[in-house]
């Protein structure tokens, strides 16, 4: 079961990468970033799982899953949110200048 969730996480990560390298719309690029992030977060959360263990609640009865990996995604989510927000703000600025969000047309800096 745990392998399925690892597999899922990696699959989601790869879907994010695929979105990045195929979509020409800037918004979709940012969506791709979010998907990648989701994949990594899922991976981290899943890594705390211990088979046949209960939730880490007091009073402890038997084993419980590792709660530590669940705290990392909280930080990572905040970071990811700020990245995405910043990216969207930049897209607005870029759209004001170029009048488009097509990656092929946004090539002012090259060479």
């Amino acid at each position: 079961m745990i392998h399925v969730s690892y597999g899922c996480a990696i699959a989601i990560f790869c879907i994010g990468l695929y979105t990045l390298i195929t979509k020409r719309n800037l918004f979709k690029t940012v969506i791709g970033l979010s998907i990648m992030e989701g994949g990594v977060l899922l991976f981290m959360v899943a890594s705390g799982f211990i088979p046949e263990a209960g939730p880490p609640l007091l009073p402890m009865v038997g084993g419980s899953v590792n709660p530590l990996p669940h705290t990392f995604p909280l930080t990572a989510i905040v970071i990811g949110a700020s990245d995405v927000a910043l990216a969207l703000a930049y897209i607005i600025k870029i759209h004001r200048h170029y009048g488009t969000v097509d990656v092929d047309k946004i090539r002012g800096l090259r060479g």
Partner: peptide, 30 residues
């Protein structure tokens, strides 16, 4: 606009890099 475009590219690259970094960290933690 140059600065904005450059920043945007930097951001996308930086975030993708950060995701790889995070994945590596998650793996090593696992």
């Amino acid at each position: 606009w140059q600065a904005v475009e450059a920043s945007f590219k930097y951001l996308i690259f930086g975030t993708v890099g950060a995701m790889f970094l995070l994945l590596g960290i998650a793996y090593s933690f696992m």
